[in-house]
Design a protein around this nucleic acid. Structure first.
Lengths: 208, 208
DNA sequence: CCCTATAAAAATGTATACATTTTTATAGGG
DNA sequence: CCCTATAAAAATGTATACATTTTTATAGGG
């Protein structure tokens, strides 16, 4: 595991308090490396929203921001159905099979941690999106997803939501399998909207 | 001008051939700095599409890619009208005035270089978008714009296109000024679509 | 001749030391 | 007491030197 991944994991697990300012030297000592790799990792983490740059005043752990979540999900609502539609004509039995395998695994394995559920969730959608063979569009969608990542711990807390989400996943996949990409796109848009609303409501209700 | 800006300017001006592989040591010598700031600049340039990472094999100057342009403009068509609509209710006389000033400057000054026209063009739209006070959405739109930047040299070659583009800008601003944000959004979508088509057609016609 | 295995070379990655910039603390005037 | 000016301290930025990884060249077997 490289430094970027180690710091990100610790941010995910709440090792650093929101609002806390992190110094390069602190992190270097904490992770037992020099400041050079710390700087590289920080730049990447900033570009993914895990840290915010105070310019030349070091970096800070950002607070949870409902407006940021709203924006991220609004964008995903616009871009992901587009990408899925571009992928739809290219989907073959193998890809659809792999997507279904992922859903089945999420369904059957009750021991999955929140981050693992999040990872499989994305892998399901990404598996379909990749079939579009549109690297630029995919890269932006992936980046938006990465920016959402720091919130997903909260999302998957609600088991109730997980059930709904899974049913939506199967409905999307079924629609794609019967070549009904319009329905699949609509379902996907609603799926993203629901996830966003659930998350924003949770954050606004205090726990942010 | 910092290293990032210097390298970017040289990439814009075609100092490095598409496909060419750049070594850290080469660039360090060329710009008379050590490899440390080169590494920082490269990471940023990669994230904006000015360079592509061969993983651990150094970076390469990307070739012009019509599919990339298509994706970028498709995304902008989806996101920018959304952002402009969020901004519309917040627009006041001062902001609208500043936007009009920018257009007038583009109109009157015939000595502007291609990159300067590109910069003003963005400044016009950004000036309106900022009124929405949606930093996350704005940041993504800005990033998409930055990724388009390496193509704009080609766009503004056609003077014919510049005229059309300017008329569209005024039409959008007029619609916003009379509180007709729906029309403004539609015009903006068409404006982006036209720019994208013009650019893709140009690239496919050989000169990429 | 082609293919794999090994050695040499080149490139990237990182630690340490120093330079520069930014922030904080201190002193003095009003 | 507050405010600005200066000095000290702390932080970031960068050069050099070394470590590690990756790529290329070379040798030998089939």
């Amino acid at each position: 595991m490289n430094l970027y991944q180690r710091i990100k994991k610790d941010l995910q697990q709440g090792r650093f308090a929101p609002g806390q300012v992190l110094k390069q030297a602190e992190l270097a000592e904490l992770y037992d490396v020099s400041r050079i790799p710390v700087r590289d990792a920080l730049q990447q983490l900033k570009s993914e929203g895990w840290l915010t740059g105070h310019g030349k005043r070091g970096v800070a752990v950002p607070r949870f921001d409902p407006l940021e979540v709203e924006d991220l999900y609004l964008m995903r609502m616009r871009l992901e159905p587009l990408l899925q539609n571009l992928a739809a004509p290219q989907l073959n039995a193998e890809t659809l099979g792999r997507a279904r395998d992922i859903l089945d695994r999420m369904e059957s394995d009750q021991t999955l941690a929140a981050t693992e559920i999040g990872a499989l969730n994305w892998e399901f959608h990404a598996c379909l999106y990749r079939a579009a063979a549109r690297p630029t569009l995919f890269a932006t969608v992936e980046q938006l997803h990465r920016q959402c990542e720091r919130y997903i711990g909260y999302q998957s807390r609600s088991l109730d939501y997980q059930d709904t989400s899974q049913r939506e996943h199967y409905a999307i996949l079924d629609a794609l399998q019967r070549d009904d990409s319009d329905t699949a796109a609509t379902l996907l848009e609603q799926h993203i909207a629901a996830a966003g609303q659930q998350l924003v409501a949770f954050l606004r209700s205090g726990s942010g």
